[in-house]
């Protein structure tokens, strides 16, 4: 049975179509991976599930209920939890409190003035939190302040905060981004061990992670699902090869909104019209094109820069040359 049904979802930012008629069906109890090159619309899609963005058209049905137009906290209360790309935790509170808070959301609902009894009287909530902390291996650290955790531990903490709610659907946005190989393996291990009954949607770049976790893979490119199926099928799909695994370099002609071989490029940076104009003129005059990975901003602005400076700045930002 499908727990999440996404039909014909479109979302445009200005002239840029981020999502183009996306259809997706997530089976209950499975791990569903969404992969695709940068700028393909993966995060946009995820944001549509949790109420951060509202699609222009289309429908998102979770467990028979539309998720469109309802607030993030209401979506969570229907059983959707989310792990962010950069861990969103309560940095000033202790680990135990960090996990107890979502447990309270589960037990007491979205708003309740329980100001008279102390937290200490709520043993059941504490037990829930401690149990999950044990599962993710943070029980030793439960009394320290969350901000002093290592990056990997913060991820694990956020995972625990979601698991304690025992959600029906868990969304993981690049759960291993920026992790070392060992930490990545730990995370994979954790996901295979804990909350196995929870349906999960994983956005991930690390193919090792994707192929060890996923039951089903959808490939997103240019805002559209170009392929979907079991991991074995995806591996051999030539379209996927071309769009994602092939690793073509993409070109962005003038540093402004444009499209290219596989992903859309957004020019966040050229906020001053004059600056963009100057840069464009400079680049055209030199007969060169600004080359950047799709979806990544080259990081250039300013009116009085010459090409060499542009190169240097780009090089500093991305560790390689901007023009070719």
């Amino acid at each position: 049975m499908a727990i999440l049904e996404v039909k014909d979802v479109n979302k445009a930012f200005g002239g840029l179509k981020a999502l183009n008629a996306v259809n997706l069906s997530v089976e209950e109890g499975t791990v569903h991976a969404i992969i695709g090159p940068n700028g393909a619309g993966k995060s946009t899609l995820l944001n549509c599930f949790v109420g951060r963005l509202i699609p222009d058209t289309g429908s998102v049905i979770f467990n028979g209920r539309s998720l469109l137009g309802i607030k993030p906290h209401e979506i969570n209360q229907t059983g959707v939890a989310r792990v962010f790309q950069t861990p969103e935790i309560f940095t000033d509170l202790s680990i135990l409190e960090n996990v107890m808070i979502p447990a309270f959301a589960k037990v007491d609902g979205s708003f309740r003035i329980n100001a008279w009894k102390t937290v200490g009287t709520r043993g059941e909530v504490r037990d829930m939190a401690e149990k999950v902390l044990e599962e993710v291996g943070l029980q030793e650290k439960r009394d320290i302040i969350a901000s002093s955790l290592s990056r990997g531990d913060k991820r694990r903490l956020e995972m625990a905060m979601c698991l304690v709610q025992d959600p029906k659907l868990l969304l993981l946005d690049e759960p291993t981004a920026g992790m070392s190989r060992a930490d990545t393996n730990n995370t994979v291990d954790l996901l295979q061990r804990v909350g196995t009954h929870i349906t999960k949607i994983v956005i991930e770049h690390d193919m090792h992670v994707v192929f060890s976790l996923a039951d089903h893979i959808s490939v997103l490119a240019q805002g559209t699902v170009i392929a979907g199926g079991k991991p074995e099928d995806i591996k051999g799909n030539p379209k996927v090869q071309e769009a994602y695994l092939g690793g073509r370099t993409h070109e962005c002609r003038n540093g402004e909104t444009g499209r290219n071989g596989s992903g859309a490029v957004r020019g966040r940076l050229f906020l001053l019209p004059g600056a963009a104009e100057l840069l464009r003129r400079e680049l055209y005059r030199s007969g060169r094109q600004l080359r950047c990975e799709a979806g990544r901003d080259p990081g250039i602005a300013g009116p009085e820069r010459r090409r060499q400076d542009v190169d240097a700045a780009y090089h500093r930002a991305h560790g390689r040359s901007a023009t070719a």
Partner: peptide
């Protein structure tokens, strides 16, 4: 985080 944790 509070909002995505289900709190109004």
């Amino acid at each position: 985080r509070m909002n995505y944790t289900g709190f109004n």
